[in-house]
Amino acid sequence: MGFSWIGRVEEVSAPEWDAVLRRSARPSPFLSRRFLVPWATAFAAGRETMAFRWERGGGAAGFLFLCRRADGAGWELLGGERVADSLDAVVIAGQEREFWSGFLRESRGLLAGGSTLRLPNLVEGTPSLHLLPELCGRFGYSFRLEETDRSPLLSLPGDFGEYLERLGKKKRHELRRKLRRADDTVPGLSFRITPGGPELDRDLSSFLVLHRSSQSEKERFMDEGMERFFREIAGRFSEAGQLRLAFLSDGETDVASAFQLEWNGSLLLYNSGYDPQYRRISPGLVLLARCIEEAIGRGGREYDFLRGGERYKYDLGGVDRVVYRATVGLP
């Protein structure tokens, strides 16, 4: 059993990284090479990055991917707080206590001089939230936990009819009403999924237009650098068969789109957008209802709405999980 530092995230062994992630308690696409390597290129340029590698039984059993914070006040999990919806250490399930104990023993120098380690976007139930308060106390570190967001999750039943029944009378009635109104108002309304292939570049451009047009905040978010990042991860997840780019169309143009990732039996809603001219038919909600129906048809276990407490997520049956930011330091 040993601990070592790897200077750049790109230098981490791909087979080791993938193997440990597959065996972790809560595998996440935001902890994968397909997401974190492009993130480091797009958002950590000029900042120091490193990976803490833990070996056990002759092979890698855990990783912690870090980068210098932009404000220079310490370190944070690679992926940051803005675009990675679920972060943590990547550790084989059941070995998290040993991993964090080893990290805290070995990394006092990392946090010397007032530096802190910030762990954003820890979603309720992740092992670190349970272990770190106790272990930080044992090894002489300070630990602070802040609630930062919500991340609604929907468990999927075996068929769409059962899903509607689970919504309850009021939500079920309202969803059915909106689905009927959309079909009646826009004849020929259609749903499609683009997993990749030659249509990806065209359809990703359509998603970006809809995303930017739906809200001024989203237009500011999707600047040129963010667009390059989205295009890069779309290509990588598409190559792995894990991209589910969804659209609602009126027969001529796309009116709503959802950028989804398929991961470990779950479908994750990473981002979305719609044409405001079609606001009267609730195109975003109608599209997501079709996405949920499609996910059920494919045998999905969960629909993960990811961060954000927008009302539509609860209207579609999402159940709250709290998202936290932890900060570790030396007293």
Rank of each mutant, 00 (worst) to 15 (best):
L306G: 01
L167E: 11
D18T: 08
A60Q: 02
E124K: 03
L204A: 04
D149K: 02
I296K: 00
R68E: 15
Y274S: 09
Q215A: 15
E262P: 05
H211I: 12
V90K: 00
E232K: 07
R33D: 12
Y314V: 03
L132M: 06
G188P: 06
S142P: 02
V91H: 00
E227V: 08
D88C: 07
R56P: 08
D223I: 12
L248P: 00
G2F: 14
E219N: 13
I281K: 03
R22A: 10
L104H: 03
E165R: 15
G80K: 03
A112C: 10
R82H: 14
L129G: 05
V37H: 06
D203P: 11
K218D: 06
T185S: 09
R172D: 07
A326L: 07
D184V: 10
R68V: 11
N264A: 06
A240W: 01
G317M: 03
S107W: 14
R290H: 14
A295P: 03
L153T: 05
A84H: 05
F305G: 00
L269T: 02
S216C: 12
G299R: 00
F99Q: 01
G140Q: 06
F221M: 13
A60C: 05
R202H: 13
R26P: 01
R301W: 12
T49M: 07
V286Y: 06
L36D: 08
D149C: 10
E48M: 13
A93M: 03
R325E: 15
F103W: 12
E294S: 10
Y274E: 10
H130I: 15
Y141S: 05
E10R: 14
R47F: 13
T116N: 11
L31V: 03
G197C: 09
L179K: 01
S4E: 15
E174A: 13
R108I: 09
G94F: 11
